[in-house]
Computed example of a mutant assay.
Amino acid sequence: MKKTFKKIAATLSAAVMCAIPMASALSANATASSNARYTMRKVYWVDSTAYVKKINVGFTNKRAGCSPATITPLVKGTPSFGGSAGDVYYNCGGTLTANNYFGGPAISFSVICDSVSDYGQGSNVYCNAFKANGTQSYNSVRTVNAFLVGDVNDDGIINDKDHVIVDAAGRAGANTYSATDRIYVNLNGTTKSYLAYKLDINDDGRITLDDADMLNSYVSNQLQKFPR
């Protein structure tokens, strides 16, 4: 099977799609259809006290029914990413070097699928951190299992119930978050907590009303899929 490679240097605001196979490479396992709607996302955080200067990342996901991963830097830095399309998996990875040092949400991988059940990670998924002198920084990176973007209340459905939660949180102001932070939202006199990272719909490392606006567009079918 012929492999294709794409390497991109991107600015902070840009998201990079890791692997785009040629049409001839689709015969083994078809990629996501043009109507694919479900975004699965994996996020990595870096301990701000560890003085991490660079991270080295790798990600693989099944091709059948899904797109190549899009890598989004969530901190200021210089990314260098590349990828390939194999028979069964998309592969991507590279490095992200901080302008200063990393802290908080650092990088995410987003995959668009025809259905949630189509999503599957490969074995080559990692994020390693390094200090300015090149030595590896251990125990300074945290991550979460891949999650369905927009399903804030974990009921398996993306609907207005999720939008109401994100809207209420966004009105509290811009919030950065860690892998374990929870946001407390009072709705109709009842306060519940939600994992903060699931409220960052637009994947910019903060929770604001922009997230609520994007989720509302998705729920009302004005937006077919989340752009990252």
Results as ranks from 00 to 15, higher is better:
S123I: 10
V125I: 13
R182T: 15
T60E: 15
C113I: 04
S217R: 13
L187W: 00
R41H: 10
G103V: 07
Y89W: 09
I157F: 02
I183V: 15
R171W: 03
W45N: 08
T97C: 02
V166P: 10
D155A: 02
I8A: 07
Y119Q: 05
N216G: 06
Y119E: 01
A28F: 07
N133W: 03
K76N: 09
S220H: 13
A179H: 09
A132W: 13
Y194R: 07
F102W: 10
S193M: 04
M1R: 06
A212W: 08
I207M: 06
V57R: 03
K7E: 14
F59R: 04
D47H: 02
P227L: 08
K54Q: 14
D114P: 03
G58A: 11
P79C: 07
G86K: 07
N186I: 06
A15P: 10
N153D: 15
K2V: 11
N153M: 08
K42Y: 00
M214E: 08
P227V: 05
Y126D: 09
T143Y: 12
N128H: 14
R171N: 12
K54G: 01
C18T: 13
A30H: 11
S123E: 14
L96S: 11
A169H: 07
Q121W: 00
V75Y: 00
T191S: 15
V164C: 01
L195Q: 10
D87P: 05
C92E: 08
N153A: 06
P227Q: 08
V88A: 03
M17G: 11
A28P: 00
G93I: 13
Y194Q: 04
G150Q: 02
D87E: 14
Q224S: 10
N124P: 04
S137Y: 00
Y44G: 09
N153E: 10
G82S: 11
Y89A: 02
A129I: 11
G65A: 01
S108C: 12
K54F: 02
F102M: 14
D118R: 01
K76P: 00
A172K: 15
N35R: 05
R206G: 00
K6W: 05
L209H: 00
D47W: 01
G104M: 12
D151Y: 08
T11G: 14
V185M: 08
A174S: 15
G205T: 07
N91K: 06
S48R: 12
Y126P: 06
K131R: 15
T49V: 12
K42R: 15
D162M: 09
H163L: 13
T95G: 07
K54E: 15
Y90F: 15
I112A: 01
N202Q: 11
G150K: 02
A69P: 03
D151S: 11
S117F: 01
A129P: 12
S33A: 14
